[in-house]
């Protein structure tokens, strides 16, 4: 039961949506899958005057491959990703990540864009989208604009999206790659990440590394990428990268884990993840979806 009362709008075009958002700016919330928003409403964590449901806007629920770009609409659910052949072939890391998000009954509703809009530190999509050089596309009263995923997360539950904007889709820059998403959880069942790392290795010894749940936002590990750049992976190179983990992350101690455990596990996850993503690049290694920890 939600004690707080609010109005509800279901626009059928993006123009109508941005108009409604502009009119109610400041006390409005967008509703897509609702798996975060409805829970927050129930918990009194948010209390908007208006909830704008964007599910009736056509065209936001598609996954399209366009040359070496993959477009993922803002209404695409985690289940859609898992069941997409295009994603399986071109961006399998999205599936490896999506399969760690909650459970099927949540993934059938929850959207990947909603995940990065909620922008909690443990946001699963964050590290993987960073590793895939993603661009976020928005539309607002001033028209369309795009933001790099690296500039997307501003702070805890804070993003580059302003109150009167709607995310339309994401664009992932695709190249041949091997990748991993390694997520530390308290047990085998669904859990929020205690810590996580998304890694992609591109041919030519180019790497992307991003961490989740060890800073107020998902973070790209530029120093680690730098130390790896141009080097073939070997024990020594991996050790150099692992040695930088504590410089990159700023984990806290909370109910889910201590800062120390988070840090040590980021080291373990990076070590195992780099090895696995390299094997996958070479067409070997554990199948996508295999848990490395």
């Amino acid at each position: 039961m939600i004690a707080h009362e609010f109005a509800y709008e279901r626009p059928t075009t993006l123009e109508e949506a941005t108009r409604v958002l502009t009119e109610h700016s400041g006390s409005v919330r967008l509703l897509a899958g609702g798996t975060d928003l409805v829970a927050w409403l129930r918990d009194d964590a948010v209390a908007p005057d208006l909830v704008v449901d964007i599910k009736a806007i056509p065209g936001l629920d598609t996954i399209e491959l366009d040359g070496d770009e993959l477009h993922v609409g803002s209404l695409v659910t985690f289940t859609d990703l898992i069941e997409s052949e295009v994603v399986a072939e071109h961006a399998p890391l999205l599936i490896e990540m999506a399969e760690t998000v909650a459970s099927p009954g949540i993934r059938n509703r929850a959207t990947m864009v909603g995940n990065i809009c909620s922008a909690v530190p443990s946001c699963d999509a964050g590290p993987v989208l960073m590793a895939y050089d993603t661009t976020v596309h928005l539309i607002g009263p001033g028209g369309a604009r795009s933001v790099s995923i690296d500039d997307w997360f501003i702070g805890l539950r804070e993003t580059a999206c302003s109150d009167d904007e709607v995310v339309t889709h994401l664009t992932l820059a695709l190249r041949p790659h091997g990748g991993v998403y390694v997520k530390l959880m308290r047990y085998g069942g669904e859990d929020l990440a205690q810590a996580a790392v998304g890694i992609v290795e591109y041919p030519g010894h180019e790497y992307r590394v991003a961490f989740g749940a060890v800073a107020p936002t998902p973070i790209r590990a530029h120093r680690i990428e730098e130390v790896l750049r141009g080097k073939p992976l070997g024990e020594e190179v991996i050790a150099d990268a692992v040695a930088l983990v504590r410089d990159e992350i700023s984990p806290i101690t909370d109910m889910r884990a201590t800062a120390e455990y988070r840090a040590r596990m980021c080291e373990v996850m990076l070590e195992r993840g780099l090895a696995a993503s390299h094997e996958r690049l070479e067409g070997a290694g554990p199948a996508y979806g295999t848990r490395l920890i």
């Binding site: 039961m1 798996t35 409805v38 829970a39 129930r42 449901d53 099927p104 009954g105 949540i106 059938n108």
Partner: peptide, 27 residues
Amino acid sequence: CERGDCGSCTILIDGRSVRSCLVLAVE
């Protein structure tokens, strides 16, 4: 639990399992 954690409110919407505690009726 009313926050999507337990699954006891599961229903099918268009054949897909969904947490009915996390859906507004108007949706």
